[in-house]
Amino acid sequence: MTQDEHKEGVKGMVNPRRYGIERVAYLMMRLSGLGLLAYFIGHIYETSNILRGQVGWDEFMDLISGTEGHIVMSIVIAMCVFHTVNGVRVMLGHGGVGVGTPARPDYPYDPASQNYRHKIGIYSAIVLAAFAMMYGLAVMFGE
């Protein structure tokens, strides 16, 4: 990044602290998307172990059935739920649903597109992801 362009770069893009919960959701959406992509690739590798026969398959299943494997899986569950719920919110927004109606703005100019419906959607995605993660942990670690 050159001083000529004076771009904020990735550091600015991933900084979630300045612009409210919407920017946090933006960052989490990107991170969970990348995480799920990584999981998808890992999943293909994981299932391809069947080609090594019963022994190879069992070895790999032992690897992912440990504590670390369960924690990774619980994070995958959380990412999946957040990405799905927030994705529905964003897709509706992209179609112009729930972003408010154009009108003459009044001071202090609270943006109508950042309304309570979208905030509820973001917080719902976070809460549901947390619940799903805890449920997953409870199931995987048993009783």
Binding site: R23, Y26, S113
Partner: peptide, 11 residues
């Protein structure tokens, strides 16, 4: 990607 930061800073 509808991060909304543009709207938050518009004066």
């Amino acid at each position: 990607h509808f991060a909304g930061s543009c709207s938050q800073v518009c004066p």
